[in-house]
């Protein structure tokens, strides 16, 4: 039985790695400028300057890397939160952290800070996310006990407040600033700053590594807090750390790429159905699958009505959402 399971896991991991390579290939080889494949191989093999080199290394590759980082981060955060809350509806944007980031970014746009440096936007987003984490934590941690129920409720409410605030900003802002805020809310992987892409990639890999130490705690928490406590899990400490880790994951992704919906909700669900509930495999599988999913969606967004580009959130929403509904209804039909 044990043997069988690990064989299955290894199979899924290899499959996901193969899919990741496929996604990377499609992201590098397909694009609106239609460079021939042979030329792309040449450029990838040795850099030779010129326009093709610039397009592959300067535009497509950074976008691919950011796609993996953001997709991985969001679905990793989704897995952790769904496991911790034992609630399949929780996703990275539920807890109001993204709302905080959005308010931060909108304020920085409204105050005209982005004219000073474009870096103020991700910075403001991250600060917004961080202050929201502190607020949520302060509201819900009493006597060193973090109330998950309270966290969920206040998080949802704060998200509502944040979206109303953004609508207020939109109503008050000048038309140029309006564009800036809307762009940011739509989310995009077209990040100009290489440093930010490295941060996003580094953070996602680092947190994947760190959360892996929590896999058995997460498995225990899935049984319920009390049961986990009986199994010897330091429940409060684990909850606290996981809350902070996911918040930082979401904060960084939202600050760099804006709001890209559905990845953090749908991918963990799918992975749970496919590889099972054990967090030993689930964490890595979700990370990989999230990256693959977002990179595929971005390739579609770039090419489906080229040269016009769609916001990637349009594709993740439509594709992810309908795929999910289809799987759910099919399964129910099977049961009946």
């Amino acid at each position: 039985m044990m043997q069988h399971r690990s064989k299955r896991w290894i199979f899924w991991l290899w499959l996901l790695v193969a899919l990741a390579l496929l996604a990377a290939g499609s992201a590098l080889f397909i694009g609106p400028s239609g460079i021939p494949f042979k030329k792309i191989f040449q450029v990838l093999w040795n850099r030779q300057g010129g326009i093709e080199d610039q397009i592959i290394w300067g535009i497509r590759l950074p976008r691919l890397l950011l796609g993996f980082a953001i997709g991985g981060s969001l679905s990793l955060a989704g897995v952790i939160l769904q496991g911790m809350f034992r609630n399949p509806l929780v996703e990275p944007y539920t807890l109001g952290i993204s709302g905080g980031a959005a308010v931060g970014v909108s304020l920085s746009i409204l105050l005209g800070l982005y004219h000073v440096s474009i870096l103020t936007m991700p910075l403001a987003g991250f600060l917004g996310a961080c202050s929201m984490i502190l607020l949520l934590y302060g509201l819900n941690a009493k006597k060193k006990v973090l109330s998950l129920q309270g966290l969920l409720l206040t998080g949802v409410m704060i998200n509502f407040i944040a979206s109303s605030l953004i609508m207020l900003f939109l109503a008050l802002s000048r038309s140029e600033d309006l564009q800036g805020i809307i762009f940011w809310i739509m989310g995009s992987l077209d990040e100009p700053n290489g440093f930010l892409i490295k941060i996003a990639l580094g953070a996602s890999l680092l947190f994947l590594f760190v959360t892996y130490f929590f896999h058995s705690d997460l498995n225990a928490l899935a049984l319920g807090e009390e049961e986990a406590l009986h199994l010897g899990v330091p429940v409060e400490r684990t909850k606290r750390l996981l809350f902070i880790i996911t918040s930082l994951l979401v904060g960084v992704s939202v600050a760099v790429a804006g709001m890209i919906g559905f990845v953090g909700l749908v991918v963990p669900h799918f992975m749970r159905r496919i590889v099972g509930h054990d967090h030993r495999i689930l964490l890595v599988a979700s990370f990989l699958a999230g990256g693959v999913f977002l990179v595929f969606c971005d390739t579609l967004a770039r090419t489906v009505i080229a040269p016009l580009e769609l916001p990637v959130g349009v594709i993740t929403g439509i594709l992810g959402g309908s795929l999910f509904v289809w799987v759910l209804t099919r399964e129910r039909g099977g049961k009946v």
């Binding site: 609106p32 400028s33 239609g34 397009i55 535009i59 140029e176 564009q179 077209d190 016009l308 580009e309």
Partner: peptide, 29 residues
């Protein structure tokens, strides 16, 4: 609102004229 940076680069322009609605990220890129 949404422009393809790749498409623009592929046209090898020596000047890009951006309006007030052009995405700030695209301009920066």
């Amino acid at each position: 609102l949404e422009v393809s940076v790749e498409k623009i680069v592929a046209l090898r322009p020596d000047l890009v004229l951006a309006g007030s609605m052009t995405s700030p990220k695209a301009k920066e890129k």
